[in-house]
Design a protein around this nucleic acid. Structure first.
Lengths: 104, 104
DNA sequence: AATCTGTTTAAGCTATTACTTAATCAGATT
DNA sequence: AATCTGATTAAGTAATAGCTTAAACAGATT
């Protein structure tokens, strides 16, 4: 989730979903250094979101869609958590507030 | 997306999905100050992910599930983008590399 | 209306993170 | 094998973001 939090990284994933890009191509489009792109790609590779392969002189990266889908579905799953309404917080009784102090 | 990138914020959303919490309850569970929680909640409110209402002395927050679902579906939608494979990068011809220099 | 409680805002500090340049690496081309 | 080229790594810097304490706020209780 943190891997997609950065604007630039999000753009990179978006770009790589449409087609392959080499590092230089990403760097020029995003107007940052190739080193910066490489560092973002390293992070994305580490979480398995993208992988790359050599094509002659160039390294071409692409998105591992299943991983991205996994992330999306994890989020979607969260929304289905059941909601249990406990009792109310008791005014002036911080210690007695079951709702807020419960440890589960 | 950035709103869920922080570990603590992610936990807060997770907790609020199970039931209501007041600020103090979140703070004690997460072991950070109430001010810190309040700041996270402000951010989450700003993107519409949570909203809160006064209950006596306490402010109870809850997750706006539709917004969370929207985020998840946006991610899921991304994965369905069509992939167009352009030509290869041309070795030693940075300017000629259609794939990486194309602007679309 | 005065007071008390939970929450929020402000200010400042610290840690993290994204970027740059420079140096190094890997491997394709000659 | 020497020499290119694109990619990566390293080191340092600047910006961002999360936390804390202290002060201000809102509104429920007395």
């Amino acid at each position: 989730m943190k891997s997609l939090s950065d604007q630039t990284r999000f753009k990179i994933v978006g770009m790589l979903l449409t087609r392959d890009f080499c590092v230089g191509g990403l760097a020029r489009t995003l107007d940052i250094s190739e080193a910066a792109v490489s560092q973002h790609l390293k992070l994305l590779k580490d979480v398995g979101l993208v992988n790359g392969e050599k094509h002659g002189y160039f390294m071409h990266y692409q998105v591992e869609r299943s991983v991205l889908e996994g992330l999306a579905n994890a989020l979607l799953g969260m929304t289905e958590v059941d909601r249990t309404l406990y009792g109310e917080c008791q005014p002036r009784a911080r210690e007695a507030c079951r709702l807020c102090n419960s440890n589960e």
